[in-house]
């Protein structure tokens, strides 16, 4: 089985104005199936550009990118859209749900753009199952404005899952959430990863990165550190500890 992500000397240079901006300067990286990687770095380190390239939203200006065994470096705009549709699930910092559209319909969205059309019943059934996985089946007909931040992010994760992609790409998924909800969301990711789904997550929060299996750090467009997480945190345990602390505070008070 091929690796999910295989980058070979990938470059990205923006030609804006008179100065060329070299955002990514030769990154080689391999991410295997079932991995859970945190991509880290300060702003301006090139991690956002990297994220766009990994997500097939942008094309590298140099090097080669194999996604699930397919060379996507030279694909057209439309072919990239099909790759995004079938092989990648996106989770964004700002959730990016369609407002005034129910949770279920938000999850159905990627299936509307599958080239081989699905039957309407299959679409609803698959979307409902994806919502069950993230524990929101009872909120299917709620609109985003009626859901909490954590719930909205769960809907977004369900949407990312629904086309059974090879890779889930999460861009600062906990950036807009409080610490407790962040841990809950990391719990969802850990559960999905345990089920064999490959996840790449961009974050700048060190403690959140501790829930992943591998941390890749970028600076000035290059990978400067690539280590396995030695003391990996479990979201379930962390939540239990929070609960105990909370009760302790209540007892002393």
């Amino acid at each position: 089985m091929p690796n999910v992500i295989q980058l070979a000397d990938v470059h990205k240079t923006y030609h804006t104005g008179e100065v060329d901006v070299r955002a990514v300067r030769g990154v080689s990286l391999t991410i295997g199936r079932g991995e859970f990687v945190a991509l880290m770095g300060a702003s301006g380190s090139g991690k956002s550009t990297m994220m766009n390239i990994l997500g097939c939203l942008d094309r590298p200006t140099g090097g080669q990118y194999l996604l699930d065994g397919v060379d996507v470096s030279e694909l057209t705009r439309e072919q990239l859209a099909d790759i995004r549709n079938t092989k990648i699930g996106f989770v964004f910092q700002g959730f990016n749900l369609l407002s005034r559209t129910s949770a279920l319909e938000n999850v159905e969205l990627p299936m509307l753009y599958i080239r081989d059309h699905l039957h309407h019943h299959d679409i609803t059934e698959r979307a409902t199952r994806a919502l069950q996985v993230v524990g929101l089946a009872d909120r299917a007909d709620h609109h985003p404005s009626q859901l909490s931040g954590g719930q909205q992010q769960r809907v977004a994760i369900a949407r990312a899952l629904v086309n059974q992609p090879a890779l889930i790409l999460a861009d600062e998924p906990t950036g807009n959430l409080d610490s407790r909800t962040s841990i809950e969301i990391m719990g969802v990711f850990q559960k999905l990863n345990d089920a064999g789904i490959t996840i790449v997550m961009v974050t700048h929060e060190l403690d959140i990165a501790q829930y992943t299996k591998r941390n890749v750090v970028m600076r000035d467009g290059c990978v400067v550190s690539d280590v396995l997480v030695s003391k990996r945190l479990s979201a379930i345990e962390e939540l239990q500890r929070l609960e105990q602390d909370h009760q302790a505070v209540q007892l002393t008070a």
Binding site: G55, L57, R77, E78, A81, D82, R84, N85, T86, F90, N96, L97, L98, L109, P110, Y113, I114, R159, N163
Partner: peptide
Amino acid sequence: TREIGIRMAVGAHARD
């Protein structure tokens, strides 16, 4: 614009 971005991210073609 954002909605269009979301649709494109999940696989909508320009034609769609």
